[in-house]
Design a protein around this nucleic acid. Structure first.
Lengths: 136, 136
DNA sequence: CTACGAATCTAGAATTAGTCTAAATCTATT
DNA sequence: AATAGATTTAGACTAATTCTAGATTCGTAG
């Protein structure tokens, strides 16, 4: 049988640690780094280790419960929004915000044709200056 | 005078080392990492150091002579193509290819409106399977 | 020509993000 | 209660990149 003995029905286990990591991400409006998640998770589960945060993030990603965003300033960010969407990053303060541009999703066919890839997803990244930094 | 004494006319200096790094990038079809660039640059300039490669890359980027691409597999890639364009990355083999989708560029207004950012640039990333991996 | 200062380069140490490892713990099933 | 597989922990390890301090280069003033 494909299912392991300790995992009937193939349900992946949402352990206490994974749950804590998920709650941290869901409780935030922003896009925390693994380190920020670790700090916050320790408030809920004081013995949780750094490695477990990474393992949990990998698990949650695979389960489709969180989204990982990598752009270029070092650490990955994690996002509670798992539906397809796009991102804008501020070149002044580094703030990363979500937005959805359905038109971007529609370009998937054109992008596949141009690149000759079998397309799985498309993601649009806007760089610019956020509203707060425009004022300042 | 705004110009420094050793930099008349504000021309930034393309030193031997920077030139070597630029030549390496221009000589390649692919998107080398800093480490690959370092290895290749040493063939031209045996004493060049790792730090200088990074400094040169920063310089060349600022001068608009090369483009840096960060996606999520660790090291940054460098691209000789400096005109706006998009990228596709293969989820099987990690290959990164350039393509241009003018329609993506046209979304910059819509993206700015949605995100409320003052837009500077947009970049589309397609994830999927490259032609080579589709065959295999 | 010589000396000075600014910019750059070099080598290696330091930092950072993330992964790996091995032993301890947990949990579902017998 | 015993077992086995999955998970967690703490800390060692790795890879990418940045920092630092001293050496070098180069253009210009004297």
């Amino acid at each position: 049988m494909a299912t392991s003995r300790n995992n009937p029905g193939n349900e992946e286990k949402l352990t206490r640690q994974r749950e804590a990591v998920l709650q941290v991400i869901r409780s935030r409006e922003d896009h925390p780094t693994a380190n920020e998640i670790f700090q916050a998770a320790r408030l809920r589960l004081p013995t949780i280790s750094y490695a477990t945060v990474y393992n949990s993030l990998r698990f949650l990603k695979q389960a489709g419960l969180v989204h990982e965003i990598k752009f270029g300033d070092g650490a990955s960010r994690y996002d509670r929004e798992t539906e397809r969407h796009d991102h804008a990053i501020c070149s002044e303060c580094g703030k990363l915000v979500d937005f959805d541009l359905p038109e971007a999703a529609e370009l998937i066919q054109a992008a596949a044709r141009k690149s000759k890839f079998k397309a799985a997803s498309v993601h649009l990244m806007l760089r610019g200056v956020c509203p707060d930094c425009r004022k300042a």
